[in-house]
């Protein structure tokens, strides 16, 4: 049983916690640097990336998070993907640059443009369809040579991995399918 940290400054960290529990592991809400100490992995949840980045700066958590991200498996969803990216637009502080992608925030539009649709996931050479929830979602507009594409919605790249860092532009924590959390916890 692994201890999975979930950054809990703001956002849908509870939903990630529930997904982790369904797989028989222990979610650890991370609200300060010390909370990371017993964690094996970290999830950066959905939420408002501007608000979360502000809080990280104000609570002096950048260095400790940066160190953890550099040495442990990390999974970011939506706002989490934005924070892990190399580059994203209109942020109050630089993202963590843990994965070589460039991201455009709210790329589909406002809430009225949010949608649920089927995406194609390929984690191990076997294609699978999955329901995905996109809420004011970002788009990956460029990716570096080290980045592997693990999922697409039509032409759009929606799930990527580089070494021990994985990121999705949608919210696997809002659907019952535990495939991505299982992959993150057991195979990444």
């Amino acid at each position: 049983m692994a201890s999975i940290g979930v950054l809990a400054l703001q956002g849908d960290f509870e939903k990630h916690g529930q997904a982790i529990e369904r797989l028989g592991h222990t979610p650890v809400p991370v609200k300060n640097g010390d909370d990371l100490k017993g964690c094996d992995r970290l999830i950066m949840p959905g939420g408002e990336s501007t608000a979360i980045l502000k809080l990280i700066e104000r609570l002096d958590m950048r260095t400790v998070l940066s160190d953890f991200i550099g040495s442990h498996p990390v999974f970011g969803t939506c706002a989490g993907l934005i924070m892990l990216a190399r580059e994203a637009d209109r942020l109050p502080a630089p993202p963590f640059a843990a994965i070589d992608i460039r991201v455009r925030r709210n790329a589909y539009g406002r809430q009225i443009d949010s949608f649920v649709d089927t995406v194609t996931i390929d984690l191990d050479g076997q294609e699978r369809k999955m329901e995905a929830v996109f809420i004011r979602a970002p788009k990956i507009v460029a990716l570096g040579p080290g980045v592997t594409v693990l999922g697409r919605h039509g032409k759009d790249i929606v799930l990527v991995r580089e070494k021990h860092v994985m990121a999705a532009s949608f919210h696997p924590e809002l659907t019952a399918d535990g495939l991505l959390h299982d992959y993150f916890i057991n195979k990444l």
């Binding site: 809990a8 400054l9 703001q10 956002g11 849908d12 960290f13 509870e14 939903k15 959905g46 939420g47 408002e48 608000a51 939506c78 706002a79 809430q111 949010s114 949608f115 649920v116 929830v133 809420i135 004011r136 919210h171 809002l174």
Partner: peptide, 17 residues
């Protein structure tokens, strides 16, 4: 049901703020 998921989903993103 999809609509409801999207609506409540945005509310989830605002939690703790």
């Amino acid at each position: 049901e999809e609509q409801f998921k999207l609506k409540v989903g945005l509310a989830e993103m605002l939690k703790g703020g």
